[in-house]
Each structure stands twice: as structure tokens, then as C-alpha cells.
Design a binder for these strands. Structure first.
Length: 533
RNA sequence: GCCGCGUUGGUCAAGGGGUUAAGACGCCUCCCUUUCACGGAGGAAUCACGGGUUCGAAUCCCGUACGUGGUACCA
């Protein structure tokens, strides 16, 4: 007991209120629904949960929320695993890793939920409802005509419907016996104020008059999200729930459920994260926006299967576009959180130390892809070539360039890394080191090309052929001496030389390039371009 | 419509009664590079609006506007 208490003592200067749960270990969960690729917001939710767990020496749990059988998407769960793995957010417990509270897939916990729903009915906190969706639709239309501002199935409308609250016991039993499909709804008592604390937003309250009788248990025998989260969070001893802001309005239902189930004392602390918004217009970021605006929204590539098997489309992911996981995590962390200093670049380990959930912002943030790229650029410069050169090598291979000299390859990458913001930029920035340029921008030379320059390059070839030590500084000295001997300014010669080696006006220093590609190749490229002039 | 949450430059944001209102991205100017980048130095906000409270408000209170989430047998 005491050990636990000391372990979770707040850091000096840290507000204590939300972690002093005597002897209770911090246990948080990331609970995605496997319906497709994981987008920015989802990964950020996972990240914040992970950071909080790790900084409190707690557990980070992955739970798959697949209670909606109609939305099952093959491959989505594998995608989630791969994504968390790529980001370095390894769950302590998950369907794959197992753990002391398995199973971690709600579809496999199906048998667990009914008893709690029944218990709620027995205690008068829930009831059977036999209404068809058509009947509910009719109710809404009627309420609209009556001029009501709430069209919900709630305390004010439920008496007009077919449910066990207003049907006699025998009628209800008859319907049940006949196998008429039913759902179980929570019975919200009007006229009460539900107040709660959100770690990010502070105190908040809801008037139960505005809360509807949410379905807890569906006609197909599956629980809805509302019942399943509460039951699972209880059973899995979850201490803190950090989830997207879209859940805020169902919080009164969840709080009530914790209370009605008799678990109020074990109720987790809540925090609702701000949304990530579209960069241009209105609304939260969706996968459509990425396609529309030309940037990824998913962490990894996701293949969206359409209705027919052969019609699909691939939605680009940050990883495939050339992002480093370090950069992706970093940009996500500071999209909606800031430690109050000027620091912007954080490693995962550093985030574990510096992250603070109560400093997460209240308002949604528009996603800015330019800034995202800046983070990647910073990380490319920061990380040693060793940690990412293989990714680039594979990218080259996918573009048809097989690298056989890894030593030269790494040298080249180090030379051009300042000018690449994405890992996929390296090909364009450095393929000329391995391949003779396909297109030579001859027009950049011709206007100022003359016999004197031609003579210079012929002599240069001769001089370079005799070079023993093939190295950038030496080559530069030779080049400049020869230029002086010919009474030419080196500046006028360097652009043609660059075009000869690179094909175009970009890249690192020309002598560096010549040094790396070697004597034979350098002379070959000069000769080739001269033949075009 | 109703309920909830929010609002500091184009974007991300610091600051939470007295500041010249930090910093970053992007943009513009210049410097450095005899290429292109990197890098460096500069430039650009009366803190949504209207009322209070106060000697004093970006900071506290109330309204309005706007944005955003929910309002499903989806999560």
C-alpha cells in the first residue's frame, strides 16, 4: 500500500489532485475502433495516453472496440498494431501481447456485458425498449411538429413509446417471450445536475434534463460503446480516461453508469482532448481533407477497399511519404500541448518526462502540413544517418536504383541531408551520385559558352586524369589554378561544371560531388556534356 | 433547434490584472554561399466584438458573434 502511494506521489510543483489514488496503479487505455487507418487525432490520443502512463510508471493498454459488427474492416486491427509499433508506442497489454485482463477485443468479451445490462434493469436504472427504428423516426417527426427543441428518446418522450417502463409487466414479458427484438436503454432521471472534473477543462456540469436514454445494449446482443467502455474500464482497472472531445457530451451517461453499477469509487479521472481541425475550412480533420489538400492524414498507408474487390484506393501515410517516426510523434505532441517554454523539438523519452496532461489546450488546432514537414527536416538533421539510411535505401530500390556501395551511400546522404525535408526527397537530391544525369540542362551553359571555356575543360580532363589523390579540396585547387592559368574566373566555370556533373542547378559543392563520384565518372560526365555543346 | 466546449498574427502558440504581447511554421527583405538548399539578421497583432469590475484588463465577470463537438441499436 505505502509503496504504491509513494510511487505515485506527484512531482514537486505538479498538481496532485488527479493522481492521488492511494495504491492504485496508473492504467490508461487507447481504445480505437478498427474501422480503417489511424489518423492524426487517433495517434495523438494514443501518444498522450502512453506518455501519461510512462511518466507515472503505469500501464498502457490497447483495447480493440469492435462492438459494431457491421463496421468490421479486415486488416484494420493489424494496421493499428503496426502503427503503434512504428511510433514506438508499445502497449503493455493488448490483444497481441496479452495481459492479466484479457481478452482485449470487445467482440471476444461479448458474454460479459449482458449481466451488467440486466443488473441495471433489475435496479430500475435501465429498461427494455421494443421500438423499431421506424417508430423512433415517427416519434421524432411528431416531436418536431409539436415544436419541441429536443427530439431525443428521453424522460419527456419515452412514455409515448413501447418500453418496459410503460408496458405492464405481463405485456413486457410476453414480448420478451415472443422473441421480439429489444434494446436496453439507460433510464435518465430528469432534474438532476451531474458534475464532474475534467483534468484539462476543470469543473463542468450537465443537467440531466438534456440527456437522452442512450441505448446500452443492442438488439444484436452486443453492447453499445457506452456500456462497453464503462464495464471494460472497470474490469480492466483503468485509472484515467483520455479521449477525444467528441466524447464529452456522453460523459454524463458514463458517469451515471459508473454510479448505477455501484462503482463510483473506482471511477477513472477524465480528460477530453481537443480535436485536430482541417487546415482550411471548418470541421475536424478527415481522410478526405488529406486527399483534397495533398497531405497525409493517416500514420501509415491505408488501402481503402470499396464495394467490389478490385476497386480500392490507397490513402497515403506519413511513413510512406518519408516521415521519421520521431518527427511524427514530435509534431503530434506539440499539436495541442506546450510545456510553456520555447522548446519544440522533443524525443519520446523527453516527452515522457516533460508532458503534462493538464497543460493540454482547450481549443482545437488546425493542422499545418508545412510545419509538419519542418519537424521532419529537423529530425533528419538531428538523427545520425545510421538510424535512417536503410529506409532511404529501400526507397531508392522502389524507384529502381539498387545501391551496392553502402559506404558511399551513407557518405552521400550525409552530404545532402540538409536539403531534404522528407526521406523521399533524397532520391531527387542525390540519385545523380549513382546515375549519370538523364537530362542535361544544356541551355544553362550555351549562352556563355565559348572556345576558351572549351579549352579549359579539355585541359581539366587532362589534369584530372593525372590526379593521384582524388579528393574535393585537391580537385578545387587544381581547378582554380588551371582557371588562373587560362585567365578565366572560376565563377564562370563552376556553373558549367555543375551542369556537367549534376545535369542541373542544385546539389552540394561541385568538388564534393566530383570527389564522391570518382575520377572515371567525373571525366566521363565532362566529356559527355562537351559532346553535346 | 437544443446541449456542451472553445476564441491571442495566415497557422501552431507563450503569457492568466501593470510586458516593448515570447517563440516556431509560412510569407517578405537583406547577408552568407561563384548552384540550389542549410544557416544568419530584419519586417509584419492595439489579444473576436460590446458592456461591466478595477487606478489599470489579452488576462476577471456578463452578453453577443463566430467556430467546433454531440444530438444513431457508430465509435
Amino acid at each position: 500500500m505505502l509503496i504504491g502511494f509513494f510511487m505515485f506521489m506527484p512531482q514537486p510543483g505538479e498538481p496532485a489532485s488527479y493522481i492521488c489514488i492511494m495504491s492504485n496503479k496508473v492504467r490508461v487505455r487507447f481504445a480505437p475502433s478498427p474501422t480503417g487507418g489511424l489518423h492524426l487525432g487517433g495517434v495523438r490520443t494514443a501518444l498522450y495516453n502512453y506518455l501519461f502512463a510512462k511518466q507515472h510508471k503505469g500501464d498502457f493498454i490497447l483495447r480493440i472496440e469492435d462492438t459494431d459488427q457491421s463496421r468490421f474492416v479486415p486488416g484494420a486491427e493489424e494496421y493499428i498494431n503496426e502503427c503503434l509499433n512504428w511510433c514506438g508506442l508499445r502497449p503493455d497489454e493488448s490483444p497481441l501481447a496479452g495481459g492479466g485482463y484479457s481478452p482485449y477485443r470487445q467482440s471476444e468479451r461479448k458474454h460479459l456485458y449482458k449481466e451488467y445490462a440486466d443488473q441495471l434493469v433489475k435496479n430500475g436504472h435501465a429498461y427494455y425498449a421494443f421500438d423499431t427504428s421506424e417508430e423512433i423516426e415517427t416519434m421524432r417527426e411528431r416531436l418536431k411538429i409539436e415544436g419541441r427543441h429536443s427530439l431525443q428518446y428521453d424522460h419527456s418522450s419515452r412514455h409515448t413509446m413501447r418500453n418496459s417502463l410503460y408496458l405492464s409487466v405481463t405485456e413486457t414479458q410476453k414480448l420478451l417471450d415472443e422473441g421480439i427484438p429489444y434494446v436496453i436503454r439507460i433510464k435518465i432521471e430528469p432534474g438532476a445536475i451531474i458534475s464532474f472534473t475534467d483534468i484539462i477543462r476543470g469543473e463542468a456540469e450537465f443537467d440531466t434534463n438534456n440527456v437522452d436514454d442512450k441505448v446500452l445494449f443492442k438488439a444484436d446482443g452486443m453492447p453499445t460503446y457506452h456500456l462497453a467502455v464503462v464495464v471494460d474500464d472497470y474490469l480492466m482497472k483503468i485509472s484515467h480516461v483520455f479521449r477525444g472531445e467528441e466524447w464529452m457530451s456522453s460523459l454524463p451517461v458514463h458517469v451515471l453508469l459508473w454510479k448505477y453499477l455501484g462503482w463510483e469509487k473506482q471511477m477513472p479521472k477524465w480528460a477530453h482532448l481537443p480535436l485536430i481541425l482541417k487546415p482550411d475550412g471548418n470541421g475536424k480533420l478527415s481522410k478526405r481533407d488529406g486527399e483534397r489538400l495533398g497531405f497525409p492524414v493517416f500514420a501509415l498507408n491505408w488501402t481503402d477497399l470499396k464495394t467490389s474487390a478490385d476497386s480500392y484506393r490507397e490513402i497515403k501515410g506519413f511513413r510512406e511519404l518519408g516521415f521519421l517516426p520521431e518527427a511524427f510523434i514530435n509534431l503530434l505532441a506539440v499539436l495541442g500541448w506546450n510545456d510553456g517554454t520555447e522548446q519544440e523539438i522533443y524525443s519520446l523519452d523527453e516527452l515522457i518526462v516533460k508532458f503534462s496532461i493538464e497543460k493540454v489546450h482547450h481549443a482545437g488546432a488546425k493542422f499545418d502540413f508545412e510545419k509538419a514537414k519542418w519537424f521532419n527536416h529537423e529530425w533528419i538533421k538531428l538523427l545520425p544517418v545510421e538510424s535512417w539510411w536503410l529506409i532511404v535505401k529501400n526507397d531508392f530500390a522502389s524507384k529502381g536504383l539498387i545501391i551496392d556501395d553502402d559506404g558511399k551511400f551513407r557518405k552521400v546522404l550525409a552530404l545532402v541531408k540538409d536539403r531534404c525535408t522528407l526521406l523521399t526527397d533524397f532520391y531527387e537530391q542525390s540519385s545523380f551520385f549513382f546515375l549519370s544525369p538523364e537530362r542535361i540542362n544544356i541551355e544553362a551553359i550555351t549562352p556563355k559558352w565559348d572556345e576558351k571555356k572549351q579549352m579549359f575543360f579539355i585541359e581539366l580532363i587532362r589534369a584530372y586524369e593525372l590526379s593521384i589523390l582524388w579528393e574535393a579540396t585537391g580537385l578545387e585547387v587544381e581547378f582554380k589554378e588551371l582557371a588562373a592559368a587560362n585567365k578565366l574566373k572560376p565563377g564562370e566555370l563552376m556553373l558549367p561544371f555543375r551542369i556537367m556533373l549534376v545535369g542541373s542547378k542544385f546539389g552540394p559543392g561541385v568538388f564534393e560531388i566530383a570527389g564522391v563520384i570518382g575520377k572515371e565518372e567525373t571525366i566521363k560526365r565532362i566529356t559527355h556534356t562537351m559532346s553535346l555543346l
